[in-house]
Design a binder for these strands. Structure first.
Lengths: 325, 325
DNA sequence: GAAAATATGTCAAGCGGTTGACATGAAGCA
DNA sequence: TGCTTCATGTCAACCGCTTGACATATTTTC
């Protein structure tokens, strides 16, 4: 592959001049600039980013660590992050931790070795200690991480409230919340808090059923949901803590011959594509994923520029009414 | 951040020795090895992969270029590629071309600049010319690319046949094939060929309706599907060329009060997660995505080792019976 | 007791680019 | 004419790591 030197020789200038052309520094005549560009095209030259990064002591790479890729929420998040990153000239190093501690650590080390500009962490079991001597900006999304990192999340509590208020306003008297795994690191827990607060406020009968991490890892909630419904057949409103769970709830109800929204009204969370692909479509709480992704990249940039960034950044959610309620 | 030199000084050895420890070359006593490792831990040292790659003239990075990330098929593919890559010590540079020509080119250049070990191309509009002077192994998945690159695909023709045979064996007499966009670069076109061949063989009435690229880009086939069904209300079997289309077909049928599988039997393609999340679940043609991903990584490795790799590699598909037929 | 294997060290070039310091012309203009 | 501004060149250090060549010392092994 052609190098800077090759280009310089062929264009009959020095490497300094070529470098100046590429990086737009110093004085360069239009003539020389054109000549250099011509030779670059002729030799099919592509600057070696590795050498460049090494020399400049910075890469334009952002590491993304997620616990799942096929999970529609993370797929959407990754897509938006990639987009926001590309718009600012960053590229993406994608890591799938499979929600495993050791893989998370391994990937964080890997990101460090590759001198990424920043890390977007959407998976989190790692001890905070590990993050301390990292010297790399870390932004978490929908995870709590106290140690001086920046956390972006949607207003989960508000989401829980919105969903529950909606169900109650439709006349539901016996609510069930299918929550995810309990984990102090997950702000999603606040969805349940909102649910409970609103139910108590209105004096509505309610119950919460949590998933196990085994279920979370396989993403198959079917039996779990069936059991939860069978335990209390009088349920007339369900708030699922993700659209994925909501979609599976629809299936279980169909099997049990329970009509949605006839007998049970259902609200999901996230507003990912499947919410529009099920029958009926799912009324859900919309996370502003695009904005969350854009802020994540923005905050990484600000950190690199030594600008101040908030420790916690919470974005509002909205209710999207569809056919399941 | 600590460098090799820092470690060497602190461990009272030379950089050569430390490098030998890290790369497991030459003779090293257990004592020295331990000492070096201790210091590395103490200084929280992480070798600079950039410098390493530059020096060794090779990275362990693989570029993946896809036209969509949220599309469940690509999400599944990315997930499997990441997994296969990680198992062999590669990391992933993720690129979303949005099915746009210029972005594809841009990303290919970017991969080149970053000296990736190989590119997995799942998006393809690029002129073949661009690929010729690339010096990087390129593996395509479900795309045709004649110019000396390796193409992995599933047996789309066989898939079309299997789906159609299945529908006919269930007694369908009036078949509709909802195909994707027509594109000479897409082997998925063979699905329609298989469909037609089997219909003709059995003398079954059949019709194919193609999508436009506008639809493909938004991934919203609803109106397209509705029109296709309204044009011929007598349809009793539909072969959708993706599970995404099949899922939307279920919705349209529900709206039109057509029961599945009662009045229309439906077969999808891909076997992605949504096929198990709809009501009814979707009978589909399963692509062996995991194997395809593993072979892709394997072929990149073989190319790097100058081993021979096949030009075309086709894997068999299977029918997965669920509730839509 | 000599040869071979083991364990380190020294030195320095090379990977491909960036960048600062400094020099040298030429054109522009007061 | 003298002073800027512009355009380029030369030289070389530096980023952090790899690696070959060669030297030296200590252990093993036959």
């Amino acid at each position: 592959m052609a190098t800077l030197k090759d280009v310089a020789e062929r264009a009959e200038v020095t490497v300094t001049t070529v470098s100046r052309v590429i990086n737009n520094r110093g004085y360069i005549s239009e003539q020389t600039r054109k000549k250099v560009y011509d030779v670059m095209k002729e030799l099919n030259y592509q600057p070696n980013e590795l050498a460049r990064s090494l020399s400049m002591q910075r890469t334009n790479t952002i590491g993304i660590i997620v616990p799942h890729i096929v999970h529609p929420y993370f797929a959407k998040l990754i897509s938006n992050l990639e987009n926001a990153a590309a718009n600012k000239g960053y590229k993406i190093l994608l890591c799938n931790s499979k929600a495993k501690n050791e893989k998370e650590l391994e990937y964080i080390q890997m990101c460090k070795s590759n001198r990424v500009s920043g890390i977007v962490l959407c998976s989190r079991n790692v001890d905070i200690e590990e993050m301390k001597n990292l010297d790399i900006p870390v932004i978490t999304i929908e995870r709590n991480l106290e140690a001086g990192t920046v956390g972006i999340q949607c207003d989960n509590y508000q989401g829980g409230c919105l969903a529950t208020e909606h169900l109650i306003s439709l006349g539901c008297k016996n609510l069930l919340h299918l929550s995810g795994i309990k984990n102090e690191n997950m702000p999603a827990d606040a969805r349940a808090e909102g649910f409970i607060a609103v139910c108590e406020k209105h004096g509505v009968r309610h119950r919460e059923v949590m998933a196990t991490s085994t279920i979370y890892n396989t993403l198959d909630y079917h039996e779990h949901i069936r059991k939860a419904i069978e335990e209390d057949p009088g349920v007339d409103g369900i708030f699922a803590s993700s659209d994925l769970i909501a979609a599976q709830t629809i299936q279980i109800c169909a099997e049990m011959n329970i009509s949605i929204p006839g007998q049970i009204r259902l609200v999901g969370f996230d507003d990912v594509d499947i919410a529009r692909l099920t029958t009926p479509t799912i009324t859900t709480i919309r996370q502003p994923v695009r904005e969350m992704a854009e802020w994540a990249i923005e905050f990484i940039q600000r950190s690199l520029d030594h600008e101040a960034v908030p420790e916690q950044f919470k974005l509002p959610v909205t209710l999207v009414k569809r056919n399941s309620t």
